[in-house]
Design a binder for these strands. Structure first.
Lengths: 215, 215
DNA sequence: ACCTGAACACCGTTCAAGT
DNA sequence: ACCTGAACACCGTTCAAGT
């Protein structure tokens, strides 16, 4: 399976791993991570909830497959410029865009464990870029880990926050006495406004520092 | 409530919000985030599971209170040096240490939403440090957000990973053909080894870049 | 070979009844 | 005023029975 099936498959086509993964993507996109249950999956595919267990050992194995699909597309549409720092930036932002196209699925998959098959190829590609710019072996390995964690952790948090409002923060901070919280009062209009800007700011910090560590 | 009660309170003391939060901390520390259920909480305190609802509206309100306690201690034991970059580093590492003393609780609280009361004071203190070093208003606000997200996101991921082995990653990568994944093969011994080193490396990248943005 | 459906051991939460 | 206990609407998963 390489693309998301568009049609709502209410007819009872033959059940398969791919059909279950596709239904998972559809439900997570439309109704959020919490909506992906065995019973919901069965209803989506016109099948009993427990038919699932003919194709996957348990729910975690389904999430592995779904996560594998999500990560496999992390470089889709990526165009490199030849400039090292700019390309690291493009790679990360491309992955982020891909993941935010499926926020519900991302949140769902984040609860899963273990490595995805497609992670090996992704790791190889990022390591290749990092080392090609002159980052030595150990530096590249650590940079890879930090960049990966930064991308995944922040984007999962953003995907989770998509459904809840950030208004509670702003309201809670707005009510605080300015004499007791002077810095907070002075910065209140800047906090919790734009999660995309926050992500890019931190990413630029990381890349700037890495850029200076190249030999 | 400012300290963790040590005693296993099997006797039926009068139920209260503090007693429920203390039991939550104890259970999460000892048995993990998943063990904190209404029925388990009731058993811990010698009380019916539903007695809980006399003191909290729902489970999320309990997690808010527990998170508030956790964040309130983020600066406990912190000693500053007077050097700006070193102090930013100490602040973040102090919070991380505090959170990793209660990994189960951290994971549990991470599923909660909304701001904690103690976050205001913590934000004020971090903003104060950032601005005192010469970071301008907007730069300080964004730096605060990135540092906060970095600390929380990475540490939650580490706390989650504490209970699962990282061995699957290393094994999966070790089996890959070296000619197809040359960079991965060359770096396999460096990946997924030390999460603490990874955290500090990324933190140093962020602080280095911020240090150079001071005026 | 694959799917069904009852069943089990769990969740969080509500509400009438007890004291 | 506070706690109990049955009950509800959910979970993921197992297993014997169907076709």
């Amino acid at each position: 399976m390489t693309a998301i099936p568009q049609a709502r498959a209410e007819r009872a086509a033959p059940l398969s791993r791919d059909a279950l993964v596709a239904a998972t993507i559809r439900i997570a996109d439309a109704e959020g991570a919490g909506a992906v249950t065995m019973r919901r999956l069965g209803a989506e595919l016109g099948v009993d909830a427990t038919a699932f267990y003919r194709h996957f050992r348990d729910k975690d194995e389904l999430l592995q497959a779904a996560g594998d699909w999500l990560v496999a597309g992390a470089f889709d549409g990526l165009e490199l410029s030849g400039d090292w720092a700019e390309d690291v930036r493009r790679m990360v932002l491309n992955g982020r865009r891909r993941y935010l196209e499926h926020p519900g699925l991302l949140v769902l998959v984040a609860t899963s464990s273990g490595p995805f098959q497609s992670e090996a190829a992704a790791t190889e590609r990022v390591l290749d870029l990092l080392r090609s710019g002159g980052l030595e072996r150990e530096e590249a390995a650590r940079a890879f880990e930090v960049i990966q964690d930064y991308l995944i952790s922040f984007t999962v948090a953003d995907a989770t926050a998509l459904h809840e409002s950030i208004a509670p923060w702003r309201e809670a901070f707005a009510e605080l006495p300015a004499d007791e919280f002077p810095n907070l009062a002075a910065s209140a209009d800047l906090l919790y406004v734009d999660r995309e800007a926050r992500f890019r700011y931190g990413l630029d910090l990381l890349i700037d520092a890495l850029d200076r560590r190249r030999t």
